[in-house]
């Protein structure tokens, strides 16, 4: 692990007007963003596609969390997440996905953000705000852990 890992959610890794032709395209786009922010090496994208073929990463409320396999961790450079919003929707094996939270992790740097995402998914109103977000700031605010909790 690098000593000063960048923030897991880099504002540059938020894309709110993406469009994808299907699930694999959407996952590939997530992988490319993780690549652009320097979180992964190129083979990680294939690892994400492989992971998705084994079990869908759809988690409810129009949200999927594509990420790599256990082997894919070898090509993760630092923990990171990206948020891609697909206002036109993506067919996700029968589910409609409007937000992808792509994950690259070899440690636990992303755990707080994912915990917050889980809380959002349990709250239909906040989940709707995530799906309808048109500004990166809104996404950052939603995913910002509400209080400093020492849980992980």
């Amino acid at each position: 692990m690098p000593e000063a890992a960048p923030l897991p959610l880099d504002p540059r890794a938020i894309r709110l007007d993406a469009a994808a032709s299907g699930r694999e395209d959407a996952i590939t786009q997530c992988g490319r963003v993780l690549l652009e922010v320097g979180a992964v090496e190129p083979p990680y994208i294939d690892s994400m596609l492989e992971r998705e073929r084994s079990i869908s990463t759809y988690v409810g409320e129009g949200v999927a969390i594509p990420h790599g396999t256990a082997e894919g961790k070898d090509v993760v450079r630092h923990d990171a997440i990206c948020v891609l919003r697909f206002p036109g929707g993506v067919d996700w094996d029968g589910e409609r996905v409007e937000v992808c939270v792509g994950i690259a992790a070899k440690g636990d740097g992303h755990v707080r953000l994912l915990s917050e995402l889980a809380q959002i998914l349990l709250d239909p109103d906040r989940a709707r705000r995530l799906r309808e977000a048109t500004e990166a700031d809104a996404v950052l605010r939603l995913l910002q852990p509400a209080e400093e909790e020492a849980d992980s």
């Binding site: 990420h67 961790k73 915990s115 995402l117």
Partner: peptide
């Protein structure tokens, strides 16, 4: 599978 995504959230 990887202990990276879904298990973390759950």
């Amino acid at each position: 599978d990887a202990g990276m995504g879904s298990s973390v959230m759950l």
